[in-house]
Computed example of a mutant assay.
Amino acid sequence: MTTVESGTGAGPLLRGWRERRRISQLELALRAGSSARHISFIETGRSRPSAEMILRLAEHLDVPVRERNALLLAAGYAPRYAETSLDDPAMGALREGMERLLQGYEPYPAVVVDGTYTVLAANRGIAMLLEGLPEHLLTPPLNAMRITLHPEGLSSRIRNLREWRGHLLTQMEREIALARSQPLRELYDEVAAYPLPEIPEIPEITKIPEITKITETGAGPEDREDPTPYPYFALPLQIEHNSRVLSFVSSISTFNTPLDVTVAELAIETFLPADPATAKYLQSLTP
């Protein structure tokens, strides 16, 4: 067998992914239907794995699609996964589906981003939240993390900024650990260094009024509901808009078993009203 120089070829890359996932050679071998000896030979370069074996190991190591192509190239094989632009006619059905999803979610905010949080599409709910931001933050390509955490961006409007900022940075740290993306690492270093803006106290009169109860006959309001804080079921994004504080919880969706690098890195984030007052206010803006 030909010995591959240390640090080159697919073997060391596979070993790096295995160690990152904290899986032993034996455990990986059992998952992939191989032997620990064979895995060792692959990692040290004593054995050249087939393209199918590389993809099988990559699947069990949860290697991102983009990095699976890199593994194949390192082993001397052609990439298996295409990277198709969203503007390509072949992506027409995907674009149409995402547009319908975004529009159907209105008046609530929803956005589509790629692997480095570049905004690819957004609905009018997102546009509403971005009203009044400086032009330099809204010049394409827009970046969701920059817009959110920049001192001149949404951060000055986010009432629980420290908690929400911590959530976003932790989310990016997890993605960097999983994908080993240098562009994402550079973005993280940039936004983590942004200073925290001074956030003034919000006068009580600017908060969303509590929803009043209506009698069954519709004759008029009864006593106001209990003014205690709403029991959020997840960390909310609390953001000021037009002298009101809106509360959202976010959900991120990705595509199952992607066969294209572009599709694999797409994420659709939707923002669900976290309390009745926010939902009522957004619905009042709908024509």
Rank of each mutant, 00 (worst) to 15 (best):
E52Q: 12
A110I: 06
R68T: 02
P49Y: 04
P64I: 08
I54N: 02
L94N: 05
A82F: 05
R48N: 10
D87L: 10
E59F: 12
L72S: 01
M91C: 09
P89V: 00
V112C: 08
L102D: 01
P49L: 08
G104Q: 10
G45T: 06
G76Q: 04
V112A: 09
E99G: 12
R100H: 14
R100C: 15
L71F: 03
Y108W: 11
G115H: 03
R80F: 11
Y105Q: 13
M53G: 03
P89K: 03
L55M: 10
R48Q: 12
L86H: 09
A110H: 01
R66A: 15
R95W: 06
D114P: 06
P64F: 03
A90K: 13
M98G: 03
A110K: 03
L72E: 00
G45I: 04
E83R: 10
M91F: 05
V112H: 01
M53C: 08
V65L: 12
P89N: 02
S47A: 14
H60T: 02
S47Y: 04
V112Q: 00
S50T: 08
A74V: 03
P107T: 00
Q103F: 10
A110D: 02
L101E: 03
P89M: 01
R80N: 08
A51S: 13
D62A: 15
E67M: 11
A82Q: 13
L86D: 09
S85F: 10
V113H: 05
Q103H: 14
E96M: 13
A90Q: 11
A110Y: 02
G76C: 06
L101T: 12
S50N: 05
Q103K: 11
L71Y: 01
E52W: 01
Q103S: 15
L102E: 03
G104P: 09
S47I: 06
A75N: 06
R66H: 11
V111Y: 00
G104L: 05
G115R: 02
E99S: 14
A82I: 11
P109W: 00
E52S: 12
E106D: 09
S47P: 07
L101K: 06
